[in-house]
Design a protein around this nucleic acid. Sequence first.
DNA 1: GTTCATATAAACAGAG
DNA 2: ACTCTGTTTATATGAA
Length: 572
Amino acid sequence: MMTPQVITPQQMQQILQQQVLSPQQLQVLLQQQQALMLQQQLQEFYKKQQEQLHLQLLQQQQHAGSKQSKEQVSAQQLAFQQQLLQVQQVQQQHLLNLQRQGLLTIQPGQTSLPLHSLTQGMIPAELQQLWKEVTNAHVKEEHINSSNNGHRGLDLSSPAPPKNPLLNQHVSTNGQYMSHKREGSTLDEPSHHSHPLYGHGVCKWPGCEAVFDDFHSFLKHLNNEHALDDRSTAQCRVQMQVVQQLELQLAKDKERLQAMMTHLHVKSTEPKATPQPLNLVSNVTLSKSAPEASPPLSLPQTPTTPTAPLTPLTQTHSVITPNSLHNMGPMRRRYSEKYNMPISPDLSQNKEFYMNADVRPPFTYASLIRQAILESPEKQLTLNEIYNWFTRMFAYFRRNAATWKNAVRHNLSLHKCFVRVENVKGAVWTVDEIEFQKRRPQKISGSPALVKNIQTSLGYGPTLSAAFQASMAENNIPLYTTASIGSPTLNSLANAIREEMNGAMDHGNSNGSDSSPGRSPLPAMHHISVKEEPLDPEDHEGPLSLVTTANHSPDFDHHRDYDDDQGHDDML
DNA sequence: GTTCATATAAACAGAG
DNA sequence: ACTCTGTTTATATGAA
């Protein structure tokens, strides 16, 4: 099969200027070129992506048999497919828009093309050849009624079947190739009643849209209305620009995708400097260690993206680069109580992440304190032990000690759910589960609006998003990767979707974790929280793990804890 | 606009 | 005198 060739803009110019082709030919050529380029680019693009994906897949599979990595791969695949789709959509839209625009804005007189210079040029052999190649490519083309060159053979070849469904879709939506076959045609030549500029009984000339009952009327119309004149030529030029624009756009998107892939690849192969938060309830990766997983606790649930609490769409920062924005004060952050969900699954799954990443956990102080206490063997901790738990479990709390410690004390005193008990060796704090449960009437469910917004902003349609969600759900893909994946858009989308999913399952799994063992088994109703805030003000993700990593041993010494914490209580 | 829950800051007091 | 612990008040913010 012949490979379609795309002629360069220069060639096109030449053709135009030399007037080597009839107007009809030009028109057809243009359309074909446009479609060809798109298709070629897409094919190429798709192929490349596929190859790279495959490569990545292989590499990752080698590295990790872990479920996590597989999920990552799936997520990446999805992301890339999204990207592909997006590119295609952009192309389509762009094309349409520009066509319209070009038609409307470009007046014959405005064109800079030296029309007058178009003399009846001779037909250079190469051009003829070129023309032949181009037309042969795929387009099933009708004999162009042009009398000039009896190129009847143009349409001989049948369109090369697009290998990629996506491409197919694209092409068909463009309406360039798939012109509906009119019933009337008895000839086996597909070319007979199809024309790149004719589809659905409508003239596809940019901005025309004239309707015809039969193909011949259309041809007549084409010859009359879209003959070679200033206007048509200008439109041709516009079309060329359209194509160029699309190329540009494609190049940009390619670049972006490339960057994404590069980024991901690097991360994926890296050891795991910064564990990413997982939060699908299903996979309990970190639960290995005994203690923390033990008591099914409930903390305010998080949206799932522990790392980067969802941010209001408008300012989605990937968790990683937040600081710059608000560097001022201490952490004036506050996660609203929406995180009223069992955090323990989340926490246990993302334990490592929180231990190493300087990210504020999306839980309230009260929830964290409760978690700390319930994790202890005796369900009671001294203030200092609570402090230690904070510093041990969260890199975030290795800074600004005065601030958060004050908050902890404040919370202990303020909430009735925390009960101080005098002990032989001093006072310890315990949790009154009943009280704790009492104080959480708030509930929030996923925010469809959020998702919607995101989709809109991304230009994804509902369908796509639905599909995306479906696949995510199906694959149980953790997209939160905020920390590692670069694309904010994807992240936000993913986050939103995840949130939504959480919302859906919300009550379903809500407790599981909460009925805390020791105390009062209350039916805990947790709620889903929705978004979170960016990071902290002063966080520089720089120093991820100061001390902690050292004691990552699965079994924590619950009492022993860290005394050294003071060490890191840094400045302030 | 009000209420509620939370975060943060800070003053204060008692104990060691 | 100092630090830790604990309580309380005030203010800000966000969500319901």
